[in-house]
Design a binder for these strands. Structure first.
Length: 760
DNA sequence: ATAGGGTTAG
């Protein structure tokens, strides 16, 4: 009875520790294997004997075990079921003569016991340092090495891991041991050491070749964000994956997708592409599924690489990798972003397999696909078409419109200036039972603000707050920008404070919008305060924010602060961009420091930045301010002939204004003809400048001609236009002509229209 | 794979 139950217990240990016995065999394969019963009895006896205090242990009784039958010591140790007891036993053995094998087996047992301990990591480390601090080295069995490497790896004790691995001869190394070492090395960011180990595993006829677990470790690391240590070089990544695949170790679909996603996110489309193609070549459609291709496609889409997107689609078809809805979602999204909306609609129409033609795919469009298309349509001003898709969605079972669908449409109608329709869509979504999100709130708040209805925006926000929908940083950004835009800085600050007190965590952009508003308002001290608060919140400034500040300090002529900003940019590694230089060139031009301005231009070219229309505009404007219109014209002509920069309306406006002010109206008029030839559209400012010019020269006929042209150009007059013309034409008794001019425009119902101010 | 918020010159 008793024997039988103990036998059962041993079998249980067998099952629990399958590798124990394999290492036991390796540990002592030359000793004769006793019958199971005989073995069992002796183990039990020894275990019982060892329950006595160590001083009472009888060496003579134990002796047979310690030599010819030392492999029994592993089950013995396990059944001691106590790490201190096992250590007593180890100390006992060490105090005698040569018991190498016995020690190895008991130590392995002690390690096994440690792994079963609730605080196994700590216990294992204690055993490791015990072994390390006792110079008479206890040889490690494969299992011991495995357990120790696993725990050292987790503890990131790289040096100890490597020493331990070196200690092993190649016959006791195994794939499992190498994998544990690799895991630890990667965890500590020791890529070079890890690559060495992998090389060793990949050697010809290696006894420990990479297996699936190796793949899991390596591919896992390649797919995760790197922590510390150096990162992989591009060719190392491709080389590693290639070698593993050649050994038949493939990433699963998830890991492959993860790796590709990561590479693409790091703007390494080339590496991702190679990686995918290595696996496609060696593993085929068994390994590569649509998801991995989708990751690649979206990476390519981000870089606008239509060519390779098409190539990959063709390869997928060739290899029999079936595209999913997501694949089509990516394609449609790409086409929409490229403003090729009609092609996107074509793809969409080919989706459902119902109809005729064999160029159709058997894919049911989902909500995302619908939403992508609707957004694309709205972004090119085809909201009505988007609306019809909304109706289509309502007729489906699986693709019911959701908040995103409505958000896209609401945004579309807001941008188109149809606030009424946007609000009706909002009511409609509520009626349909679709919960608005904070994005819905922000879209409407922003839309209302952008159309000068800041009051309505605030009202709507309050209404939503009443319904329990909190605003987020985006909501406050919209309101703060809007209030800054109408020069109501106090209100903007008030909303900034409300945001903080309402528990909404601000992001960098809210700070930026406030800094922007304050800078434009010339309140640079306040802006500086917000900058330091932003920094205290743990954010940094980006180029755009620096540009705003630099521009603000320039306007206040605080040159020392400008340089302070530029130095700070250098220190924090924020690279100045074309806008930074344009701001500086413009400022230098305005104070008449042409020498420094041209130095700046040289520096920007050296930095690889091409001067833009704005740069030229700044210089041209500067010469105009100096009343050196000839030089300004010279630069303008140079810009048109030598550079690839096409002139724009602003440049013409600057020159036309300057020429008129210098009495050279003829040349200004000829510049307007030049605009027509070059296809640059004049705007209200252009006409205002030239009207002033012809008025000063009393060129009445020219004025009538220009008034007709202004109507042709569909360019609406503002109050300045009306002021110039009314005063002048009234004085010369030509008010009829002015009436005709005004009648040339379609009637505007807007109360803020410039006409209403003048005509009523 | 889809939705929202802050830059320069005149």
């Amino acid at each position: 009875m008793l024997v039988q139950s103990k036998l059962l217990r041993l079998r249980r240990i067998h099952r629990l520790l399958p590798s124990t016995f394999s290492s036991l065999r390796r540990c002592h394969s030359d000793s004769p294997s006793p019958s199971r019963k005989e073995h069992e009895l002796t183990v039990t006896q020894v275990v019982e004997h060892l329950q006595n205090p160590p001083n009472d242990w009888d060496y003579d009784k134990l002796r047979p075990f310690l030599f010819e039958a030392s492999h029994h010591l592993l089950p013995v140790t396990l059944r001691l079921n106590s790490i201190p007891k096992a250590l007593d036993f180890i100390n006992y053995l060490r105090s005698r003569t040569e018991h190498h094998q016995a020690l190895s087996c008991v130590f392995e047992g002690a390690l096994e016991l440690a792994t079963q301990h609730p605080n196994s990591q700590k216990e294992l480390l204690i055993l490791h340092s015990y072994r390390k601090s006792n110079g008479d080295n206890i040889a490690l069995t494969s299992r011991s090495a495995f357990l120790l490497l696993k725990c050292l790896g987790e503890a990131q004790m790289v040096d100890d891991s490597l020493l331990l691995f070196k200690e092993l001869d190649s016959s006791s190394k195994s794939s499992g041991i190498c994998n544990e070492l690799l895991k630890g090395l990667f965890k500590s960011g020791c890529i070079d050491d890890a690559l060495h180990v992998i090389d060793e595993m990949l050697e010809r006829d290696s006894d420990f070749p990479p297996d699936d677990f190796t793949g899991e470790v390596v591919f896992g690391v390649l797919g995760k964000q790197e922590r510390h240590g150096r990162s992989f070089a591009d060719d190392e990544i491709v080389g590693l994956v290639t070698k593993l695949c050649e050994h038949g170790v493939f990433p699963d679909a998830f890991k492959l997708t993860q790796m590709i996603t990561k590479m693409c996110r790091h703007r390494k489309n080339g590496v991702a592409w190679e990686l995918l193609h290595v696996v496609m070549r060696l593993g085929g459609a068994v390994v590569v599924k649509a998801a991995s291709c989708n990751a690649m496609l979206s990476g390519l889409g981000r870089e606008r690489d239509t060519q390779r997107m098409n190539k990959l689609m063709a390869e997928m078809e060739e290899m029999g990798i079936k595209p999913s809805v997501v694949t089509f979602g990516i394609l449609v999204n790409h086409l929409c972003k490229a403003r090729r909306i009609d092609e996107a609609l074509e793809v969409f129409d080919k989706l459902r397999g119902k109809g005729e033609g064999n160029d159709r795919f058997d894919v049911e469009p989902d909500v995302v696909l619908f939403n992508t298309l609707i957004d694309g349509l709205c972004k090119v001003g085809r909201e009505e078409h988007g609306l019809s898709l909304l109706e289509k969605m309502k007729t489906t079972k699986q693709s019911r419109p959701n908040a995103i669908t409505y958000n896209c449409l609401i945004d579309g109608f807001c941008k188109a200036g149809n606030i009424g329709k946007a609000r009706r869509l909002y009511s409609q979504m509520i009626e349909e039972g679709v919960q608005p999100s904070v994005v819905t709130l922000n879209t409407l708040v922003n839309g209302l603000c952008k159309h000068g209805k800041v009051h309505d925006a605030v009202e709507f926000f309050n209404e939503m707050k009443g319904k329990g929908l909190q605003g987020n940083a985006g909501t406050y950004t919209a309101l703060i920008s809007a209030f800054c835009g109408v020069n109501n800085i106090d209100k903007a600050m008030q909303y900034f404070d409300e945001m903080l007190s309402s528990g909404c965590s601000p992001d960098a952009i809210v700070y930026y919008s406030l800094i922007n508003g304050l800078s434009i308002a010339g309140r640079m001290d306040d802006a500086s305060v917000v900058v330091s608060r932003l920094k205290r919140a743990g954010y940094g400034l980006d180029v755009r924010c620096y540009n705003v500040l630099i521009s603000g300090f320039c306007k206040k002529k605080k040159l020392e602060r400008v340089y302070e900003m530029l130095n700070e940019m250098e220190e924090t590694g924020v690279k100045s961009d074309i806008v930074t230089y344009n701001t500086l060139v413009s400022y230098l031009g305005k104070i008449g420091d042409f020498a420094t301005a041209s130095k700046m231009m040289k520096r920007m070219i050296k930095e690889g930045l091409e001067p833009s229309v704005v740069t030229y505009g700044a210089i041209i404007h500067a010469y105009c301010l100096k009343e050196n219109v000839d030089e300004a014209m010279k630069i303008f002509e140079e810009m048109c002939s030598k550079s690839k920069v096409p002139p724009n309306t602003v440049i013409y406006n600057i020159l036309i204004d300057a020429l008129c002010k210098n009495g050279n109206v003829e040349r200004a008029v000829s510049l307007m003809d030049d605009m027509k030839i070059k296809g640059v559209r004049p705007n209200t400012t252009t006409y205002n400048a030239i009207f002033k010019g012809v008025r000063d020269k009393k060129m009445l006929q020219k004025a009538f001609e220009l008034m007709d042209r202004m109507i042709e150009d569909a360019c609406s007059p503002d109050y300045i236009t009306m002021e110039i013309l009314t005063e002048w034409l009234d004085a010369v008794g030509e008010i009829e002509k002015l009436k005709c001019f005004v009648d040339g425009y379609p009637v505007s119902s807007s109360a803020s229209s410039p006409f209403s101010k003048c005509m009523l």
